[in-house]
Simulated assay, not measured.
Amino acid sequence: MNIGVLGLQGAVREHVRSIEASGANGIVVKRVEQLEELDGLIMPGGESTTMRRLIDLYGFMEPLRQFASEGKPIFGTCAGLILLAKHIVGYDEPHLGVMDVTVERNSFGRQKESFEADLSIAHVGEGFNAVFIRAPHIVEAGEEVEVLAKHNNRIVLARHGQFLGCSFHPELTADNRLTAFFISMVKEAKEKTLA
């Protein structure tokens, strides 16, 4: 299984390491054509405004929408979650707008307010050490969205069909359980298309 990591900005190598530790093939995606060889895609953390500029600059927006419309799973972490969200607090337009959630940027404070917290994650397990860096959070989730984890009553991880979005950086620890969960979503989606 080929899992891509959008390689425009952010913790790309760390995601690839986690994908490979979970038994799949990790590919750094820098060109639009590479999307065709993927079964799933991770959109990493970084700075969402910068990432959007690079997505536009390299002509990724429509191909990413196409990728999503083909039923292929996408996992957005931190800035990646902002890119997936249908609504962003204080902004008129979404980026990809494929995941039925409303997110608020930098809702846990600035860089210096970064922190770690142990989370209990549905389908994944207890004691997941989550690293929050200038993290957004999900203010509101649509009715088809499954909330998988909260921190201090704020939604920090959710799944909407083939989309998975989280506020934190799962790739910055040695715990690969969340990446493995995403890979199981990719497997599931692949089996559906083959059926």
Rank of each mutant, 00 (worst) to 15 (best):
M43H: 07
P44W: 13
P44V: 02
G45E: 15
G45S: 13
G46R: 12
E47H: 09
S48T: 14
M51V: 11
M51H: 04
R52Y: 03
R53V: 10
R53M: 05
L54N: 04
I55P: 15
I55D: 15
I55N: 14
D56R: 08
D56S: 04
D56I: 06
L57N: 03
Y58K: 01
G59D: 13
F60D: 11
F60E: 13
L64V: 02
R65C: 09
R65D: 01
Q66L: 08
Q66A: 13
Q66N: 12
F67C: 02
F67V: 01
F67K: 01
A68T: 00
A68Y: 00
G71M: 01
K72S: 01
P73T: 03
P73Q: 05
P73D: 04
I74N: 02
F75R: 06
F75E: 02
F75M: 10
T77L: 11
C78N: 02
C78L: 05
C78P: 06
G80A: 08
G80Y: 00
L81N: 09
L81G: 00
L81M: 15
I82Y: 01
L83M: 14
L83K: 05
L84F: 12
A85V: 06
A85P: 05
K86N: 05
K86T: 02
H87N: 08
I88M: 07
V89G: 03
V89P: 04
G90Q: 07
G90P: 02
G90R: 01
G90C: 04
Y91L: 09
D92A: 09
D92M: 02
H95G: 00
L96N: 05
L96H: 02
L96Y: 06
G97V: 00
G97W: 00
G97K: 06
M99N: 11
M99R: 07
M99V: 07
D100G: 00
V101W: 08
T102H: 11
T102V: 05
T102N: 01
V103L: 06
V103R: 03
V103M: 04
E104W: 00
E104P: 12
R105T: 04
N106C: 12
N106A: 07
N106F: 03
S107I: 05
Q111D: 11
Q111Y: 14
Q111S: 14
K112S: 14
S114D: 10
F115Y: 13
F115L: 13
A117M: 13
L119N: 12
L119K: 12
L119D: 08
L119V: 14
A122D: 15
V124C: 12
G125V: 14
G125W: 03
G125K: 09
